[in-house]
Design a protein around this nucleic acid. Structure first.
Lengths: 174, 174
DNA sequence: TAAAGCATGTAAGAGGTTACATGATTGG
DNA sequence: CCAATCATGTAACCTCTTACATGCTTTA
């Protein structure tokens, strides 16, 4: 998860750890601690996905390697299985620019059916909570869950419409 | 997190592991795996917060001990620091019935100011993303973040109104 | 020059994931 | 009786958290 975000940022341009932390915070997801970030950089370096520009410098900037680029491409498009699916999707969207236009719709649709499945579960739970005499706060929670998922689906539909337009323009540049 | 949810469920009535898993899934938060659940039960038992009714039975039902009840009370009301604040709050709300009426408003207000702070950050990010020429999908993500937080705050305000009514009724039972 | 902030890192411990292993019970 | 489901558990591995340690650089 963190790995994916780091790779995505480094695909844009080389950055050092401290800088990455600031950028990650700005992207909204993850208040990454240094205890998570630096080991992650090590990890990625050991895998050969990133490399330090000047390893001895005080600010150790890393760049994405070719292998890292390949790995990122795979991570951006493969199945996003639960848990972490929400964060994963958010990160993917943040780096949608790096996903080929023709694959974007797939990803959005996959996410949509995931949410629809969840909505089914949540609706079921709500029905049950409504029929039994559930605590009003618990009930409010369950209802809010349903509403949030519905709103997310509506938002996704907008994104899907956007992506469809992109695809069309690509095939039909007139 | 898992601990809190388990304690909460056990405060309602004794349950065994498999059953707990089903209940947790129903509460919407957490697709808990058995590899997480059973060690958690062990942990809680070792701390003396829960105890098995019939340790040798095929279905090992656990009950909350007095110490567990005290621990739960503390966990339900103490500071919910990031990360996990979202899940924590959801779990708390699910067990709001176990929180004294006079403390509920505090918890809801604390959550509210947490969200307001987040909204500030997110709005700032949105402004920045709007001013630079950010990728439309990234922009959509950032905008959606802001909207989701706003909607959560509005929802919280409803809960706060509910809680205020409860408190008033308590002091003024007429 | 002292304080605040920048910058990198390690260590211990907690808790989660997947995969594996085992066996009882229920329903067709 | 066989399959599906119920039910409990362990082991290896991974990643995160917090706390600690260190030292450079900027600014008042």
């Amino acid at each position: 998860m963190l790995d994916l975000a780091v790779l995505g940022l480094l695909r844009r341009e080389p950055r050092h750890g401290y800088d990455l932390k600031l950028q990650l915070a700005e992207l909204g997801f993850a208040r990454v601690s240094f205890g998570a970030l630096y080991p992650a950089l090590r990890r990625l370096e050991k895998r050969g996905w990133i490399e330090a520009l000047r390893p001895a410098a005080r600010r150790k900037a890393y760049r994405l390697t070719e292998a890292g680029r390949t790995a990122l491409d795979a991570l951006l498009t493969d199945e996003d299985d639960e848990p972490e699916a929400d964060r994963r999707f958010a990160v993917r969207l943040a780096f949608f620019e790096f996903i080929p236009v023709e694959r974007r719709l797939d990803i959005l649709r996959r996410r949509r059916s995931q949410l629809v499945a969840r909505l089914g579960d949540a609706t079921q739970t709500l029905r049950q909570a409504t029929s039994t005499d559930t605590d009003p706060y618990t009930l409010a929670l369950v209802r809010h869950n349903v509403e949030t998922i519905e709103s997310d689906i509506a938002w996704l539909d907008e994104l899907i419409a956007m992506a469809r337009t992109d695809t069309r323009h690509r095939r039909n540049p007139s």
